[in-house]
Amino acid sequence: MASKEQKGEEKRPGFGEMMKGVLYGMASHGHVMAALRTRMYLEHLFMFITLGDMLGIPVLPPYYSLRILPYAVPNIKSWKMRVFRERDFTDAIY
């Protein structure tokens, strides 16, 4: 979903757009979240074996990992947040 930075005073969307949103929310949003979450865990795996030592876990030689590093730079912070957030079983309903 595109984030709306201007808060509170967005203009009212038309009926068609509303319905589209609702339909998407009902039919696909859960699926999108499941896909994103699966993606996240796969990315965890990916990052562990490329830049795992960023988490203080000494893993494989990062010779070729370093080539991945430039692309990861902007996401490292949020990756760490995702990895370290303690999750509860009640977070898994989606």
């Binding site: 696909s28 699926h31 999108v32 896909a35």
Partner: peptide
């Protein structure tokens, strides 16, 4: 998975 999320 990224692609599917985007498609959806």
């Amino acid at each position: 998975y990224e692609a599917v999320a985007a498609t959806l």
